[in-house]
């Protein structure tokens, strides 16, 4: 494979498309930088001037509330000028291709694109088709990757658990269709986590997922035994009954996170969920609101982590001095 297009010639982060191919130092640098930015949210004037004069376009080809809002906030707190563009698919089916859309945006002298798209590989495609001074941040592409979500999850884990190299982590639910799970798995492995378990019925486990570096179990009781971190995945409505699963009720019965099952995990286990949650389908309401849950912290942390990634990518850009 050729050079990692995410890095500039000095090995600094230029695009953020996937966790895959980034090393532990770089991921740690993101987490450390995010740590620094958390204080910004606690100030009365929640702004730093790092990206003043820079223009960021949030190109959302797929609906999103949480991710788009936290990107928007992160960009504004860095003092960037922000353009929010929600391109519903009907506009693109009118004939404009992704490439056309991009070329128009490039003509508006944007410095950075944050892209969400329903097709896997869309962010890579964008990165390969914009002038090299523009950075591209992946805000979720198909089933492929959601690297900023994975980093905010790592940040949240690190705030509660000191050492990744001693952690046992369980990821429960629809791994097959989850870009979040793929990015989390890469991040956990890169950060040295020795045991990542994936728990789901075989219908929701993608082929050869073991090759990503996980253990697979179809039994939630076995899978939860002694884990320090429990990551729940969202189950899409359309997959709750049909060929993947018989019913919501049966899914909850065999794979729902209940108080009883939570007992199997370590005493100080934390529970995470990328949202939005289906209470009573993948997670018991009481468990979601329990002291183990760090789900709302994830949302708060999302802002600092995205600030870190945006500022790091923009730095590499200015470091290049537009020579490319």
């Amino acid at each position: 494979m050729s050079r990692n297009i995410q890095l500039d010639s000095n090995g600094k982060l230029h695009h953020f498309l996937s966790i895959e191919g980034l090393n532990r130092n770089l991921l740690t640098e993101i987490l450390d930088t995010a740590e620094h930015f958390t204080s910004v949210g606690n100030q009365t004037a929640k702004k730093v001037p790092l990206l003043r004069g820079k223009t960021i376009a949030n190109l959302f080809f797929e609906p999103s509330t949480r991710t788009r809002t936290t990107f928007d906030l992160a960009e504004k707190r860095l003092s960037a000028d922000v353009l929010n563009i929600n391109i519903n698919t009907s506009a693109t089916t009118k004939g404009e291709t992704l490439l056309d859309t991009l070329q128009n945006m490039v003509a508006m002298q944007i410095d950075m694109f944050v892209v969400r798209h329903a097709a896997s590989g869309a962010a890579h495609f964008v990165a390969k088709n914009v002038p090299s001074h523009i950075s591209v941040i992946n805000a979720g592409d198909g089933r492929h990757a959601h690297p900023t979500q994975a980093m905010l999850d790592m940040f949240t884990i690190r705030r509660h658990k000191e050492d990744f190299t001693r952690l046992r982590v369980a990821i429960i639910g629809d791994v097959m269709h989850s870009r979040v799970a793929r990015s989390q798995i890469h991040a956990l492995n890169t950060l040295g986590c020795p045991e990542v378990r994936v728990i789901a019925p075989r219908t929701l486990i993608p082929s050869h997922v073991e090759d990503l570096g996980v253990h697979v179990t179809t039994n939630i009781e076995d899978g939860l035994n002694g884990v320090d971190v429990i990551i729940m995945l969202r189950l899409q409505n359309e997959r709750m009954s049909g060929a993947h699963l018989p019913s919501k009720k049966e899914y909850f019965q065999y794979y729902g996170l209940t108080e009883e099952r939570l007992q199997l995990a370590a005493d100080d286990a934390i529970i995470m969920h990328p949202g939005p949650m289906n209470r009573g389908v993948e997670i018991d309401s009481a468990v979601a609101d329990s002291g183990h849950s760090v789900i709302l912290q994830q949302v708060t942390n999302g802002i600092a982590v995205r600030m870190a990634i945006l500022s790091m990518a923009m730095q590499s850009q200015s470091g290049q001095g537009g020579e490319l």
Partner: peptide
């Protein structure tokens, strides 16, 4: 369908 499709989410 295999480790590549899983890795790339295709």
């Amino acid at each position: 369908e295999g480790s590549v499709s899983t890795r790339l989410g295709l």
